Lab assay of single mutants.
Amino acid sequence: RNLTILSLPEDVLFHILKWLSVEDILAVRAVHSQLKDLVDNHASVWACASFQE
């Protein structure tokens, strides 16, 4: 069985995303439609995003 980041529970993905910069979140968003939906549909992803580079 192949395990990917998409195999992780949504709460784990949120925990990972909250540590990323805006640039990295946008890069993750571009990788897969499921990740794009996760980022686009949950404001909590952006609430913790680091807007300082």
Rank of each mutant, 00 (worst) to 15 (best):
D24H: 03
V12Q: 03
D11R: 12
A47R: 11
D24T: 04
L6M: 06
D24W: 03
E23F: 03
E53I: 06
A47L: 10
S33R: 11
C48N: 15
S21Q: 07
R29H: 04
E10F: 07
A27R: 13
E10S: 10
S21Y: 05
W46R: 13
V28S: 02
Q34E: 07
N2P: 11
D24S: 01
W19I: 11
T4P: 07
V31G: 04
S44G: 14
F14E: 13
E10P: 08
D37T: 14
S21K: 10
E10Y: 06
R29M: 06
W46K: 09
D11W: 03
W46V: 07
H42R: 11
A27V: 10
T4I: 01
R1P: 12
S7H: 10
H42Q: 09
E10L: 04
V31D: 03
D40F: 01
F14N: 11
S50E: 12
H32S: 14
L8F: 13
P9N: 01
D24I: 04
V28Y: 00
Q34P: 02
S50L: 06
D24Y: 06
E23L: 01
W19S: 13
H32F: 02
A47I: 11
K36R: 14
A47Q: 11
D37Q: 14
S44E: 15
S50Y: 08
I25T: 03
A49E: 12
E53T: 08
I5S: 00
L20P: 01
N41L: 09
R29Y: 03
A49R: 14
V31S: 15
L17C: 10
C48A: 10
N2I: 05
N2V: 12
W46I: 09
E10I: 05
A49M: 06
L3V: 07
K36I: 00
L35K: 02
S7G: 09
F51Y: 10
T4R: 03
L35M: 08
V31E: 00
E53S: 07
K18F: 05
L13D: 04
S21N: 11
S21T: 12
E23S: 11
H15P: 03
A43W: 10
A49V: 05
I5E: 04
C48P: 15
V12A: 02
F51P: 11
H15D: 08
V39L: 09
E53L: 06
A49D: 15
V12C: 09
L13M: 11
R1I: 14
P9K: 02
N41C: 10
R1T: 13
L20T: 00
V12H: 03
A43I: 05
V12P: 03
T4Y: 01
V28I: 11
L3A: 03
V28L: 15
S33H: 07
A43N: 09
I16P: 04
V28P: 01
V22Q: 10
S50D: 14
E53N: 10
R29T: 00
F51G: 11
H42M: 05
Q34V: 12
W46G: 13
Q52T: 11
N41W: 03
L20C: 07
K36Y: 01
A30M: 15
A27G: 02
L26D: 00
W19K: 15
V45E: 15
I5Q: 00
A30G: 12
S50I: 05
V28N: 00
H32Q: 06
V12F: 00
S21A: 12
F14V: 15
L17G: 06
V39I: 13
S33D: 06
R29L: 01
L20Y: 03
Q34I: 12
K18Y: 06
V31A: 13
V12E: 00
T4E: 05
L26N: 06
L35T: 04
I16M: 09
F14S: 11
R29E: 01
K36C: 00
F51H: 12
E53R: 13
Q34M: 11
V12N: 00
V22L: 14
V28T: 05
P9H: 00
S44L: 06
A49L: 08
L6S: 01
L26M: 11
S44N: 14
D37N: 13
D24N: 00
H42D: 03
E10W: 03
I16A: 01
Q34H: 12
E23G: 07
R1C: 10
V22P: 11
L35G: 03
H42K: 13
D40W: 00
W46C: 08
D37I: 15
L38T: 11
R29V: 06
A47E: 08
L8H: 13
K36F: 02
H15K: 15
A49K: 15
L20G: 05
V39M: 02
L8R: 01
A43G: 08
D37M: 15
V12K: 00
R29P: 03
S50T: 11
W46Q: 11
L13Q: 12
V28M: 14
T4S: 14
N2T: 11
H32Y: 01
R29I: 02
L35A: 02
L8K: 03
L13K: 07
I5N: 00
I5F: 10
V12I: 14
H32P: 03
W19H: 15
W19Q: 15
I16Q: 00
F51N: 14
I16N: 00
V22N: 06
W19D: 11
A30I: 10
L17Y: 03
H42A: 07
A27Q: 12
L3S: 12
S33V: 06
L26S: 06
N41M: 10
H42I: 13
Q52H: 12
S7Y: 01
E10D: 10
D24Q: 03
L3Y: 14
F51M: 14
E23W: 05
I5A: 04
V31W: 02
I5K: 03
H15S: 10
S50Q: 14
I16F: 00
V45P: 13
S44V: 06
L20D: 04
T4F: 01
H15R: 15
A47N: 12
I25Q: 05
V31I: 05
S33C: 01
N2H: 13
D40E: 04
S7N: 12
S7I: 07
I16Y: 05
D11L: 05
F51E: 08
L8E: 04
L6D: 05
I5W: 05
Q34C: 10
I5H: 02
T4M: 03
L8G: 00
P9L: 03
C48F: 08
L35I: 11
N41S: 14
V39T: 02
L8I: 06
D40I: 00
V39N: 04
K18I: 07
L38Y: 11
L20F: 00
S50H: 09
K36Q: 05
L35D: 06
S33E: 04
H15M: 12
E10R: 13
A27I: 09
F51S: 10
V45S: 15
S33W: 07
L17A: 02
W19P: 07
N41P: 05
Q34Y: 08
W46P: 08
L3P: 09
L35Y: 04
W46N: 12
D11M: 06
V12W: 01
D37A: 14
S44Q: 09
A43R: 10
A30N: 08
F51W: 09
A43P: 13
W46A: 09
V45M: 12
L13H: 05
V39G: 04
E23C: 05
R29F: 05
H32D: 06
E53K: 14
A47P: 12
L35P: 01
A47C: 10
N2D: 09
D11S: 14
W19T: 10
L6F: 08
V39A: 09
I5Y: 06
S33G: 06
K36M: 00
I5V: 10
S7R: 07
H32T: 06
S7A: 07
Q52Y: 08
